[in-house]
Design a protein around this nucleic acid. Structure first.
Lengths: 234, 234
DNA sequence: CGAACCATTGACCATGATCAATGATTGTGG
DNA sequence: CCACAATCATTGATCATGGTCAATGGTTCG
């Protein structure tokens, strides 16, 4: 089994049964993941690095994780942001194709793929959920491709804010747990362009920026129009 | 798919979760697909459309398929190109998140997902291959994200040519089964920029263009240097 | 042969990158 | 607790890349 931090949470986690035992009490992967012991990472710590042979599946209980690649010229491309509730790392490959790093402090659970496959063998009905998890990541990546290409900075940024808004329960007050540099590397822009366009949104009364990592949406419709590229005269 | 995949080729190998079990007698997913009946599509015909509830898995025996989305402003983004030998459409979702269209005439086989899952229930050992197939599409999409962002037109185009080169068995003569418009929509450029940069490659003696859909690589090293962004003075 | 479509080339322009300076925020040691 | 350094964010000036508009050339197919 894994060497996970033996916090008080692990006292509540289920013992790992023998492979031949039935798992009737655990019907979904989500439940199986939730029964694993909790681990804690500080901001900046890595779950795994690009090229690692790490074979774990992770479920984020709280916090934010970025998946990124470093290009040959040294620039960083953030491939995906993973929020609380997301599962990541299910892809089967000899090596990790990107690095995973905690953006904020993160609580997560992990399960090694071998155990996952063993459970799948015993409970084939889990397969559709497994496929669904990977499909969601694929859909996520494809959406990112569509956003990155041929969209203006203001469209990218508006769409990004709306995504944060959505993932934080539609509250008008949106927390931005990322630095400007993270946003830039995610959207394929520079920090200057991110900053300039945030200012633009601010002066047009679309948003307010009470704190650097906190944002207030003043005009949701306007923001959505911008994200959809419906505003020409900007 | 394009750029970083070179160092991650081995990442596509199948995991072997139960090393103690005899694996050899088990059918692979590829074999199951190959036993399905052959279908033929002309260029321009669709396998499925974005929004369809189609639930088939496809294996391309010959030809080229493009997966694309149409953005809200009407522009097309090609998400992925699928070549002979590739399997596609495994993602589980209520609706297709993109359209799949034959670029050339295509021979393919299909299998509905329900049958696939039934197959998987009988042979749970197929699961790793299934996961691997989806993982490859995910890796592909992530590579595309890395290429699209913050790379110059000449880098994108060089990487694209090298990818075609690689997928066609490293021959110096590369067939380009796509129109300039397809290349543009795939790389996130305009047809004019594609054309101009092809001309640039031609005048610098990196390639020749004997026919519109045929290309000859004269200087492979130079092309690779360009794809890696190692040339400043262009 | 002409029509339709695709590709190439040119002129011009807009968006966002780069370079540079200043402000704001955070962290550290005296 | 303050002072200083370091990091991060904002703003400005300039420039280059690639998009847009437009004209021409080439290919294919009836």
């Amino acid at each position: 089994m894994l060497e996970l931090s033996a916090g008080l949470e692990s006292a509540h986690s289920l013992p790992i049964p023998f492979a031949d035992e039935p798992y009737n009490h655990l019907k979904t992967f989500g439940e199986i993941m939730s029964s694993q012991s909790l681990r804690r990472l500080d901001a900046g710590q890595h779950l795994f690095h690009q090229g690692d042979s790490d074979r774990n599946i992770y479920k984020i209980e709280s916090g934010l994780v970025r998946l990124y690649r470093v290009l040959s010229d040294g620039r960083r491309q953030i491939i995906s942001l993973r929020f609380a509730g997301d599962i990541l790392g299910f892809e089967s490959a000899a090596m990790r194709d990107c690095s995973a790093e905690a953006v904020t402090s993160v609580r997560l659970r992990s399960l090694d793929q071998t155990s996952a496959y063993r459970r799948l063998r015993d409970e084939p009905a889990l397969a559709p959920e497994l496929v669904s998890l990977l499909s969601q990541e694929l859909e996520n990546a494809r959406g990112q491709i569509a956003v990155l290409n041929r969209r203006s900075a203001i469209e990218k940024l508006s769409a990004f804010i709306l995504e944060l808004h959505r993932r934080q329960g539609e509250s008008d007050s949106v927390e931005i747990p990322l630095s400007r540099s993270d946003i830039a590397d995610f959207l394929g822009l520079t920090i200057e362009t991110v900053s300039r366009n945030l200012t633009k949104l601010r002066t047009r009364r679309i948003i307010q920026l009470p704190q650097i990592h906190r944002l207030l949406i003043l005009d949701l419709d306007g923001l959505e129009a911008l994200a959809a590229g419906e505003c020409e005269n900007w």
